[in-house]
Amino acid sequence: MSVMDIEQVMQYLPHRYPFLLIDKVIELELGKTITAIKNVTINEPFFPGHFPVSPVMPGVLILEAMAQAAAILSFKTKNYTPEDIGIVYFAGIDGARFKKPVKPGDQLVLKVDIVREMRGIWKYTARAEVDGALVAEAELMATLRDKP
């Protein structure tokens, strides 16, 4: 059962196809943690070029999916939507590691925890798993910015 379905996710992320990388949220504890899902299909627009013979989800998009989950967590924690305040911008990535390739048919489980929020800068730890196995991890930083 989802905590947030795709319609609710779209209320908290300004991203749209082909860059919306969260399908649903299955766990959310305000101020602490989020678990979100990205269903990876062969129809993803990046697979024809990455790589045609052996399709693999680009690592940078796995990081982006983790960042989108972090953005939802921040917005929900502050009780804001992008319409209220603006956008959560990626500010930094540390310690990114990729352990296993993500392929069509995989379900990417994104787990993000807030480490701290200070003066509008958020720090998170993030993990991506497929079938319970770690595929990527990183420390992320982001900031909430006013609407352009």
Results as ranks from 00 to 15, higher is better:
V115F: 04
P48D: 10
K103W: 00
L61A: 06
R16G: 07
A142H: 08
R119M: 15
D84H: 07
E27G: 02
T33E: 15
G59Q: 12
P55S: 04
F98L: 11
V109G: 00
A136Y: 05
Q68K: 05
P55T: 03
V115L: 14
I34T: 08
K32C: 06
F19I: 13
F51I: 05
W122M: 08
V115Q: 14
T81I: 04
E7F: 11
A67L: 10
D84R: 06
F75A: 07
I121F: 10
V53A: 15
K103F: 05
P14N: 11
Y124N: 06
R127I: 04
I93S: 01
K24V: 02
P104Y: 02
N43H: 12
I87L: 14
E64Q: 10
G105L: 03
N79R: 14
K111V: 10
N39H: 15
D146N: 15
A70W: 00
V115W: 04
L21R: 04
T77E: 03
I121T: 12
A65M: 13
N39T: 14
A36S: 15
P82T: 02
E83V: 10
A126H: 00
I121D: 00
N79P: 04
K78V: 07
V115S: 00
P82F: 09
I85F: 07
A67S: 13
G31D: 11
V60P: 03
E29H: 06
Y124D: 00
A133I: 12
I22D: 01
P48E: 10
I121L: 13
R127T: 12
D146S: 15
A128H: 03
M10I: 07
K76F: 02
A69F: 03
K147R: 11
M10K: 15
R97M: 13
Y80C: 07
R16E: 04
A91G: 10
V40E: 00
A67N: 01
K24M: 10
R127P: 02
L20K: 03
I114D: 10
G120D: 04
L63E: 05
S2I: 06
F98S: 08
A142W: 03
K99M: 13
L30E: 13
V135M: 02
W122N: 01
